[in-house]
Design a binder for these strands. Structure first.
Length: 767
DNA sequence: CGGATTTAACTTTTT
DNA sequence: GTTAAATCCG
């Protein structure tokens, strides 16, 4: 932990400092006092941060342990750590982590001061909503009239804005808010009783800790002589308070951000934090990084012309020394299906002509629901892809069930998790029995777990249920005793074995069943890996790491696959080629109801983020119609497209296809296009796009396996063997109807009969 | 009590 | 079009 610079590190840093531009260099060398770095997209913000930290340790002799650097994702934290090591040749002891992980760590240490035990657990959004729902019902309201989701989000918003239940009650009139205030209070009490923190607590409880224990605040103030914050524009009021609290000792606070990339307002991020920084710290040194090293001139011009329409922003102009490059393509298509086809076309073309790899491409969308159409298109073209986001791994049911066991083992006071598993696997402990136990527990002010250990004393419990409860209680106790004896990996393994989870899904041969087993295996691997890599591998440490992981952290962007994700997810990343789909009014910008102008500005920033991910090429697509929510509707192009600087844009408009033509395209696409079968969840089958002689979705005559337009009859007939992703293999019994309404009756080998609309069915011919 | 079937809600973005 | 929750029946 010494700050002795290695000679190799010193020269490496010296050489690297030479490559910074003058403004970057000044920002790095301004180490003391408050510093605000306004760093435009692609302006080398991470370079400045890492060089600054290396500069502090190597040139100023600051010990690593005096430095605290905070990011929003684990991935960003890890990247920063790696790059600092490269510069310094191994300086360590620096606190680099996400906001949530840094303060979770501090809370672990100081837990007793805020009424918690060290083995607290962390509740995610689902846990949070379940608990809120329980409380709504406990207080005699119906979850139908008082939606738990809404209450939970009001509570969360209040906490992020540092509003107490009492303050909430007095400033929000109305019966609904009265219930919310009531639940809010109970919710906080329940968290303490369960020895759990929600995400918001990880920020707000330390604020309280510091206020109530000035000596503790003093300790951390003294310790963190230098504090650096990445993605500062995403901080909410509570985080801001915390950062300021910690900095007021040495006042060496350096924040890096870009107001144009503030896209988390809905989560409480407060753009005032960046716009007003200089008022909060009048002696602030401000640096503007305006040279973009990422994108070509046209991309930057397009992006700048859009964000320029925003009124609430710090004026700045990004410029690039790179060539103008290609113009940004704006492509109008019929619908999401053709949209996907055009994306595929672009990818094949770029791979072929410019020798690009699949990993060079990202397809970005506003909402996760849009991924399906793109996936279908890529799968049919045999292009492998990776989806980032969507249903998150650690939120899957099978994983959360195991997690609930682990949470109860580390912290038996976690009633919420206990409820989840007390009858999973089925132990004959149903609602009625559980009701009796909770009533009994509530009377005596006991936790559920403790009550389970005293079933004999509870009246009216059926003998069988009582026996099972005792066994369950024993099981948890056994592992609770073991948790410090064996590794987290071994423990997780033993628990999964004992409750027979894998065996439970074994007979389930559907893709979901196989996926579940695969997920469980991956989870076990994660536990073992944690055991091997973590310095101090405890079960609660493992649980904490999981609770704070983000989806982008798990993504492997190095595999040879196209990346699909939301624009939010893409922040901080870059790709040579970016396709943005669904640029239609109401979808991007997404409008739920007529909201204020601030929301539109955030949508515009989001579009700016999307554009600035690209290094060399951008295509923007919008459809004339699309399935949105429950119906297909006509769409008009996004207003953002009109805002693009015309000189940087190339508009491609395809004439609407004649009905008959479109229909023949469907025939081709579905007759043999589907059925590449994924096999792997989330991944398309890796194939070259051009080696496929049966991929062709276009209406060109002379293309496709059948040597031209498919005749108007179905490729299926009585007796044809077919496969289906979900139902497995089967035999066609009959084909009925004509044209787009043609249907096909299939009997699957397990006896199930299903009728499909051929136009949509994912049936493939098999031998 | 448990399993199967039906029904409702969901779709903004996530630490 | 999917998935979780509610309801019904054995």
């Amino acid at each position: 932990m010494s700050a002795t610079p290695s000679p190799a590190g010193r020269s490496r840093l010296a050489a690297s400092l030479e490559t910074l531009n003058p403004e970057q260099r000044r920002a790095v060398e301004q180490t003391d006092g408050p510093v605000l770095i306004l760093a435009g997209a692609g302006s080398g913000k991470t370079r400045v941060l890492t060089h600054k930290i290396a500069f502090l340790t190597e040139r100023r002799g600051v010990p690593g342990r005096d430095i605290l650097a905070m990011t929003f994702t684990k991935k960003a934290a890890e990247e920063m750590r790696t790059r600092i090591r490269e510069l310094t040749g191994g300086e360590d002891g620096i606190w680099i982590g996400t906001f949530h992980s840094v303060f979770a760590r501090i809370l672990r240490t100081e837990a007793p001061l805020v009424g918690y035990h060290r083995d607290f657990v962390i509740y995610d959004k689902e846990d949070q909503e379940r608990l809120v729902k329980q409380l709504i019902e406990k207080l005699g309201h119906s979850a139908k009239q008082v939606p738990p989701r809404m209450v939970a989000s009001l509570i969360s918003r209040s906490k992020n804005g540092l509003v107490s239940p009492q303050e909430f009650r007095s400033s929000n009139p109305g019966p609904m808010n009265a219930v919310t205030a009531e639940v809010f209070e109970e919710y906080q009490a329940a968290l303490v009783a369960n020895q759990a923190f929600d995400y918001d607590d990880l920020i707000t409880v330390p604020i309280r800790l510091f206020r109530e224990h000035p000596s503790v605040l003093e300790k951390y103030r003294r310790r963190f002589r230098y504090i650096l914050v990445d993605e500062y524009q995403d901080t909410n009021r509570a985080q801001y308070r915390l950062v300021v609290d910690l900095s007021l000792g040495h006042r060496n606070l350096c924040v890096v951000g870009d107001d144009d990339q503030s896209i988390y307002g809905w989560r409480g991020a407060d753009i005032r934090n960046i716009l007003d920084f200089e008022q909060d710290f009048p002696e602030t040194a401000v640096f503007r990084l305006e040279q973009n090293y990422r994108s070509t001139g046209n991309i930057l011009k397009a992006a700048g012309s859009v964000v320029d329409k925003n009124l609430r922003r710090k004026a700045k102009t990004l410029w690039s020394a790179r060539e103008a490059g290609e113009k940004v393509d704006v492509i109008e298509v019929e619908d999401e299906r053709e949209e996907a086809r055009r994306v595929v076309e672009c990818i094949r073309d770029e791979v072929f002509r410019n020798k690009r790899n699949f990993r060079d491409f990202a397809v970005l969308y506003r909402t996760n629901a849009q991924s399906r159409a793109v996936e279908d298109g890529l799968r049919r073209a045999g292009i492998s892809y990776v989806i980032v986001g969507g249903v998150r791994f650690y939120e899957r049911k099978e994983i959360k069930d195991v997690l609930a066991y682990l949470k109860v083992i580390t912290n038996p006071r976690d009633d919420l998790s206990l409820r989840r598993i007390v009858n999973f696997p089925i132990r004959g402990i149903g609602d009625t029995t559980l009701q009796k136990i909770s009533a009994w527990a509530a009377e005596r002010n006991l936790g559920l777990f403790e009550s389970l250990g005293r079933v004999e004393e509870i009246p009216d419990i059926p003998g069988r249920a009582g026996k099972n409860m005792r066994a369950f209680h024993e099981l948890i106790r056994k592992y609770a005793a073991l948790k410090d004896e064996i590794s987290a990996g071994e423990l997780v393994h033993a628990v999964v074995d004992e409750i027979g989870l894998i065996a439970m899904f074994k007979d389930d041969t559907t893709p979901e069943g196989r996926g579940r087993i695969e997920n469980l295996r991956e989870f076990l691997n994660a536990a073992h890996e944690y055991t091997q890599t973590a310095e101090d591998a405890t079960l609660s440490g493992f649980l904490e790491q999981i609770a704070l992981i983000t989806d982008i952290d798990r993504a492997d962007l190095n595999s040879s696959a196209v990346t699909l994700m939301t624009v939010h997810c893409a922040k901080g990343l870059e790709f040579p080629v970016v396709a943005v789909v669904g640029l239609e009014d109401g979808l991007f910008p997404l409008i739920r109801d007529a909201d204020g102008a601030d929301d539109l500005e955030e949508e515009r920033r989001l579009f700016y983020v999307a554009l600035t991910r690209a290094k060399e090429k951008v295509i923007l697509l919008h459809g004339r119609n699309r399935y949105v929510f429950n119906s297909r509707s006509g769409r008009i192009p996004s207003r953002f497209l009109d805002e693009l600087d015309g000189s940087a844009v190339n508009v491609v408009r395809e004439e609407p296809k004649r009905q008959v033509k479109r229909w023949s395209r469907f025939q081709d696409g579905d007759g043999n296009g589907y059925g590449y079968g994924t096999g792997e969840s989330g991944f398309g089958r890796p194939r070259s796009p051009w080696d496929s002689d049966d991929f062709d979705d276009s209406p060109r005559p002379g293309a496709g396996r059948s040597g031209g337009r498919r005749p108007a009859h179905s490729p299926f007939q009585h007796g044809t063997r077919v496969g289906h992703e979900e139902y497995g293999r089967g035999t066609v019994l009959s084909v009925e109807g004509e044209g787009p309404r043609q249907t096909c009756l299939v009997r699957f080998d397990d006896g199930v009969e299903k009728k499909f609309l051929l136009r949509f069915a994912r049936l493939e011919r098999i031998q």
